[in-house]
């Protein structure tokens, strides 16, 4: 029993059943998309901000899903790449006066390179040991950001404040609404890319490594290269999310990027469904809204409530929102 097999998807479904439930899925996706497109027009600015954060976390979770769900590598340290993305954007805007739109691809690129480089030594480590290595990364991030020798760039403990951009071309949107649509657009673009990646030849190689690295190697897959590349791509997604977060929150500081963030991303991944990309949306919603719900139920025991909700979710849908939807679809078909 290896870790790789444990986190693999539930048994594959046959193709004809897939096609039948395909139309239902398509309608559902269109409905979700329509809601996502229209809802900010009718909501308060703060709610729009929360929804934007949900989308941002969803992007980061997608990245983590590529690594953990499709490639079978654990990461407890994706908060670090989120932080690198956020700081890249903040520093480029603050010190170089670059427009926010251009900083996002740069942040993605920087994160891709750092993720790839971190992925190289991580090749030697498996499951729990990899978890520890990434865990260390998450612990180290806020402390490195606080370093006095980097203070000139990072602003030390105080962090960097950036200015929220207005909607361009005189569009009749508030700043929050505009950023919501920027995030939604970026998210959809990345979702499309991730989906295509997973379905491509490279995607099959990535999943083959998850299911059986030795067999993948003997089929001619360059395991080391693909694992490191997946780490890079995953970091790219998370970095873009971090960059967007910096713009939306208008502020970066070391203490926003602690272990708590990395763990929240992981919880979001499991809640959404490991190995199912659209689940990221459910995961993002969990990260943003569930702590608030827990606080409303009981102020003093909000942590305990949060924990209880997590345990209940794992009981009720062991394979996340993705698993739940799949079960419901199967049940619908059998009726």
């Amino acid at each position: 029993m290896t870790a790789q097999q444990d986190i693999a998807l539930p048994a594959g479904r046959d193709k004809t059943a897939d096609r039948k439930s395909g139309t239902a899925m398509l309608l559902l996706s269109i409905a979700v998309l329509a809601v996502l497109f229209l809802c900010p027009l009718f909501l308060k600015n703060f709610t729009v901000f929360q929804l934007t954060m949900m989308l941002i976390y969803a992007i980061a979770i997608m990245g983590l899903n590529l690594l953990t769900g499709f490639n079978g590598q654990f990461s407890l340290g994706h908060g670090a790449f989120y932080a690198i993305g956020a700081y890249t954007t903040a520093i480029l805007m603050e010190h170089f006066g670059i427009a926010y739109g251009w900083t996002i691809p740069v942040a993605g690129l920087v994160c891709f390179v750092s993720g790839f480089l971190f992925g190289l030594p991580a090749l030697r480590l498996e499951s729990i040991y990899l978890a520890l290595a990434t865990f260390s990364l998450a612990i180290a991030t806020p402390q490195i950001l606080k370093l006095s020798i980097l203070e000139e760039w990072t602003g030390g403990v105080q962090g960097i404040v950036i200015i929220k951009p207005d909607a361009p071309f005189g569009l009749p949107l508030s700043q929050d609404q505009w950023l919501y649509y920027v995030t939604l657009g970026t998210g959809l673009l990345l979702y499309w890319a991730a989906r295509n990646l997973v379905r491509s030849r490279s995607g099959r190689a990535i999943m083959a490594i998850r299911d059986n690295p030795v067999a993948a190697r003997s089929m001619g897959v360059n395991v080391s290269l693909y694992k490191a590349l997946t780490f890079g791509v995953s970091a790219l997604f998370t970095g873009v999310a971090g960059a967007l977060a910096a713009i939306v929150v208008q502020f970066v500081a070391p203490d926003s990027f602690t272990l708590v963030l990395s763990i929240a991303l992981l919880v979001g991944l499991v809640v959404g469904g490991v190995g199912w990309l659209p689940g990221a949306l459910a995961g993002g919603a969990f990260i943003v809204f569930v702590p608030n719900i827990a606080e409303e139920v009981s102020k003093g025991l909000s942590g305990a409530m949060y924990g209880l909700i997590m345990i209940l979710l794992i009981y009720l849908m062991p394979s996340g929102a993705g698993g739940l939807i799949r079960t419901l679809a199967d049940w619908q078909k059998r009726r």
Binding site: I7, V270, Y306, L308, M310, I311, I314
Partner: peptide, 26 residues
């Protein structure tokens, strides 16, 4: 959850963490 995937266990551990921390504080 005996046969649940490793990641589900991880989430349970995080949940236990939150519960004990908040209970002790309470």
């Amino acid at each position: 959850l005996e046969n649940a995937p490793v990641l589900s266990h991880l989430v349970i551990f995080i949940a236990l963490y939150a519960i004990f921390n908040s209970l002790a504080g309470f």
